[in-house]
């Protein structure tokens, strides 16, 4: 057993090394005082972070990504929650079929959704732009919000909903004043999860925007200009924001489990 533990620890150390290698390279050379994000490290500086904040393209992309992320995640959670509530609280024929249709986008690649929207927009003569990206992100993230909500709508809340109904509350009132507040941490967690996926999504955004591009598409453009520590700084900042959101998810869902 001792040797097994030793082997396991060694193996885990190697895996962690592999997993963290690109992150270390990314963050370390975002502090590069020189002009290239490769060794040697010519001293530490924050100049590339300043450059990011003064880069109009990056900041514009950040603004677009923020809008796309917030709107698409709010829609994903709203639609996903309603659908999960309907499936968890009502008996109806074809439940499996309805669930299958809603979960369907989880089984296809972003490329198919992005291509579908591109072909449709061009068939309808619609101009490419952020609304199309938002629509695509809801298609990809709503199944996730739906699955998260469905997993949290248990028997415990159902009894409290019955009590509210016995006291005369209507369907909508129960939903808004009883169910939604009770699973609020889940809804916020689902929102954060959808947001981190949406604001970092590349393919759908790349295919369906032309001028109002999102942050990943701006960074894609930066890469064509060659290697610069500015890309590292932008990447490190995105990482920081995503990690912050995921920590929020972790804390929200963990607190819920303990409660």
């Amino acid at each position: 057993m001792k040797t097994l533990t030793l082997f396991a620890s060694l193996y885990m150390a190697l895996c962690y090394l592999f997993i963290f290698l690109p992150v270390v390279v990314l963050v370390l050379f975002s502090f590069q005082a020189g002009n290239l994000p490769v060794p040697p490290l010519k001293g530490l500086s924050l100049r590339w972070y300043l450059a990011v904040f003064h880069d109009a393209r990056l900041m514009g992309g950040f603004g677009h990504s923020l809008v796309v992320g917030v709107v698409s995640s709010a829609l994903s959670v709203l639609l996903g929650f309603l659908a999960a509530y309907g499936l968890a609280r009502y008996d109806m024929p074809g439940k499996r079929f309805i669930r299958g249709i809603i979960m369907l986008p989880m089984a296809v690649s972003y490329l198919l959704v992005g291509m579908g929207l591109l072909v449709s927009a061009s068939a309808l003569g619609a101009a490419p732009g952020l609304p199309t990206v938002i629509i695509g992100h809801v298609v990809m993230n709503m199944p996730l919000a739906f699955a998260i909500c469905l997993a949290q709508l248990g028997e415990h809340q159902r009894r409290i909903e019955y009590a509210a109904r016995d006291l005369g509350a209507g369907t909508l009132r129960v939903l808004l004043t009883i169910t939604a507040p009770m699973i609020a941490p889940t809804l916020i967690a689902a929102f954060c999860m959808c947001f981190t996926l949406s604001w970092d999504e590349f393919l759908i955004a790349f295919l369906n925007t032309r001028f109002d591009v999102t942050l990943p598409v701006v960074i894609w453009g930066l890469l064509r200009g060659g290697l610069t520590p500015e890309t590292n700084a932008a990447g490190a900042l995105i990482f920081l924001i995503s990690i912050g959101l995921m920590l929020a998810v972790e804390i929200l869902l963990l607190r819920k489990r303990r409660a």
Binding site: L26, T196, F202, W220, G235, F239
Partner: peptide
């Protein structure tokens, strides 16, 4: 954790 680095980055 590194799952949450930007996809392009």
């Amino acid at each position: 954790l590194p799952f949450w680095t930007s996809y392009v980055v």
